[in-house]
Computed example of a mutant assay.
Amino acid sequence: MQINLIFTNKGKVAIENFNNEELIEIFTRYSNTLTKKYDIEIIVPVEANANITEEGVLTVVAQQVNCDVETFFKELGRDIKVPLKKRLGTKLDTVFKIKIVE
């Protein structure tokens, strides 16, 4: 299942402080940590995420989904605020919304 993480306006401002490789690495690391708690496999494909900051979208692929996808990504959104907030230096609300493409 393909899922697009569509960054909010504040999320777009936050990700402008990162390059694509950093964003892919951050989302991969935080997703992998959460998969220890949730029964889901997440892949962040490099080729599908060539221009994250310009497009304002990060694409992930979910496999072997045995949990509530909305809950997983809601928690990922809370976790991902930590590195974004550190580099931005200001408070962040919701960073992204999810759109399930399948």
Score class of each variant (00 low, 15 high):
6 I>T: 06
6 I>Q: 11
6 I>N: 13
6 I>C: 10
8 T>P: 13
8 T>W: 05
11 G>R: 04
11 G>L: 08
11 G>F: 08
11 G>T: 07
12 K>D: 08
14 A>R: 02
15 I>E: 01
15 I>T: 01
16 E>A: 14
17 N>D: 11
17 N>V: 00
18 F>G: 06
18 F>S: 05
18 F>Q: 08
20 N>D: 13
20 N>R: 06
20 N>Q: 13
21 E>R: 06
21 E>D: 14
21 E>W: 01
21 E>V: 04
23 L>G: 02
23 L>F: 07
24 I>C: 05
25 E>I: 02
25 E>Q: 07
26 I>R: 12
26 I>N: 12
27 F>W: 12
30 Y>F: 11
31 S>P: 03
32 N>G: 15
33 T>A: 15
35 T>A: 09
35 T>C: 11
35 T>K: 09
36 K>W: 08
36 K>S: 07
37 K>M: 11
38 Y>F: 15
38 Y>H: 07
38 Y>C: 02
40 I>F: 09
41 E>F: 07
42 I>K: 01
42 I>C: 06
43 I>D: 14
43 I>M: 12
44 V>T: 07
46 V>E: 15
46 V>N: 12
47 E>V: 08
47 E>A: 09
49 N>Y: 00
51 N>K: 07
52 I>P: 00
53 T>F: 07
54 E>N: 15
55 E>W: 10
56 G>T: 12
57 V>S: 11
58 L>W: 05
58 L>A: 13
59 T>L: 13
59 T>W: 04
60 V>Y: 05
60 V>A: 15
60 V>T: 13
61 V>W: 11
63 Q>R: 14
64 Q>P: 03
64 Q>I: 09
65 V>K: 08
65 V>W: 00
66 N>R: 14
66 N>Q: 10
66 N>D: 14
67 C>L: 01
69 V>H: 02
70 E>C: 04
70 E>D: 13
70 E>M: 02
71 T>A: 15
71 T>H: 03
71 T>Q: 08
71 T>V: 15
72 F>V: 06
73 F>W: 01
73 F>S: 06
73 F>A: 09
74 K>I: 12
74 K>C: 08
74 K>T: 15
75 E>D: 13
75 E>K: 04
75 E>A: 02
75 E>S: 03
75 E>G: 06
75 E>H: 02
76 L>V: 02
76 L>Y: 03
77 G>V: 06
77 G>T: 00
77 G>F: 00
77 G>K: 02
78 R>N: 13
78 R>W: 00
80 I>L: 05
81 K>A: 12
81 K>M: 08
81 K>F: 01
